[in-house]
């Protein structure tokens, strides 16, 4: 197989999932309390997309992985310190708002612009990857709009598997209703794949990969284009849901007692 690919992964950053989140009213609409102080991680589904991209690039020598990311530069730099140890990549950084309360259409416009600016991009090798949703906005709409802007009409969402056929066709498994996968075959790139979890674990840290990546990542961060997003969204309210339940803790009951209670509860209509 002589194919090689240019895999462009779009991935934002989100607060470390262990942080306590609280909305506040900011000058430009809602924001997270202490947003700039919260530690950040790569958006988890975009992370799966990135790991899949890296695995594909390993399999097809000559392939290249780009990570296009829109986030405040300082936060992006922090996140790169973990990501760049795992996957060989070239970063295309945009310095702008990375929170969830922005409009996906605006984010898509910025990302598409950045992708169009990548020198030497070849549509016949282009695979556009991303998470099928973000863990911030959770809309699952950005990638489709990026692809539309790039003229890509072979699009897949909730992808768990990509296999490249002998003829270079793309066999793709997408999550659909009822716990099933839809199987589709696309003739060739370009295509958009919005990834769900895929089948790969998180790659272990690799000092050598990190070393290599940093030669390009830091210059890319240094010249990250300042990006502003307009928003057509007006927020009538933003609030934490009422979470707390009154938990009854059953501590000293026998196994039989507990089992009976659970069985009765489970069987009740």
């Amino acid at each position: 197989m002589a194919n090689s690919y240019q895999v462009v992964v779009c991935g934002g950053i989100v607060p470390d999932p262990l942080q306590t989140l609280e909305p506040v009213a900011g000058p430009a609409g809602p924001a997270l309390k202490n947003e700039m102080m919260l530690p950040a991680v790569l958006d988890p589904w975009a992370g799966h997309a990135l790991y899949e991209a890296a695995a594909l690039a390993r399999k097809f020598p000559g392939s290249k992985v780009y990570l296009v990311s829109l986030a405040p530069k300082a936060k992006l730099q922090q996140v790169m310190m973990t990501i760049a140890q795992r996957v060989p990549l070239e970063l295309v950084a945009l310095d702008g708002p990375g929170g969830g309360f922005t409009d996906s259409a605006e984010t898509a416009a910025a990302l598409a612009g950045a992708i169009q600016g990548i020198a030497g991009l070849d549509r016949s090798k282009l695979l556009l990857f991303g998470g099928w949703e973000s863990a911030s906005r959770g809309a699952g709409s950005t990638m489709q709009m990026v692809a539309e802007r790039l003229g890509i009409v072979d699009q897949f969402q909730g992808v768990d598997e990509l296999q490249i056929g002998e003829d270079g066709s793309l066999r793709i498994l997408e999550r659909v209703e009822g716990g099933q996968h839809q199987v589709s075959v696309c003739d060739a790139p370009p295509a958009l794949l919005g990834w769900a979890t895929g089948n790969l674990g998180e790659p272990a840290n690799n000092a050598q990969v990190g070393m290599q990546n940093m030669r390009t990542i830091m210059p890319s961060l240094q010249k990250a284009k300042p990006t502003q997003l307009k928003s057509g969204i007006a927020f009538a309210s933003v609030a934490l849901p009422k979470l707390q339940r009154e938990t009854r803790i059953v501590k000293d009951a026998s196994v039989d007692e507990i089992a009976k209670e659970i069985a009765d509860w489970a069987a009740a209509e």
């Binding site: 989100v14 909305p23 007006a234 927020f235 309210s237």
Partner: peptide, 15 residues
């Protein structure tokens, strides 16, 4: 709609 994986609830309008 929900933001941040069901952790924050927002009500939005658009012109």
């Amino acid at each position: 709609r929900w933001y941040y994986r069901q952790r924050i609830e927002g009500v939005i309008e658009r012109a």
